[in-house]
């Protein structure tokens, strides 16, 4: 039972982080595409902004790894 709950918690840590990242990237991507269409020189900045929310799912992954591997 405990083992199952641990895996569930790890899955939630990654899954919720991924949902948050996906939602944030969808908003940034849509706005960024519009910005690039008007000013192509901001492509680099938009790319960085688009990559920033990925930290959420990475942190979720780290938490999941701690849950699974650290007893």
């Amino acid at each position: 039972m405990d083992e199952g709950i641990r895996f569930l918690a790890a899955a939630l840590a990654v899954g919720l982080g991924a949902i948050g990242t996906g939602w944030a990237q969808s908003r940034i991507g849509a706005a960024g595409a519009g910005a690039i269409a008007e000013k192509p020189e901001v492509t680099g900045t938009i790319l960085v902004l688009l990559a920033i929310p990925e930290t959420m799912v990475i942190l979720g992954f780290v938490i999941a790894a701690v849950i699974v591997f650290v007893h």
Partner: peptide, 12 residues
């Protein structure tokens, strides 16, 4: 600290 943890993507 978040920046450092962000490097776990290398492994992920």
């Amino acid at each position: 600290v978040g920046n450092v943890l962000s490097y776990t993507r290398l492994m992920a």
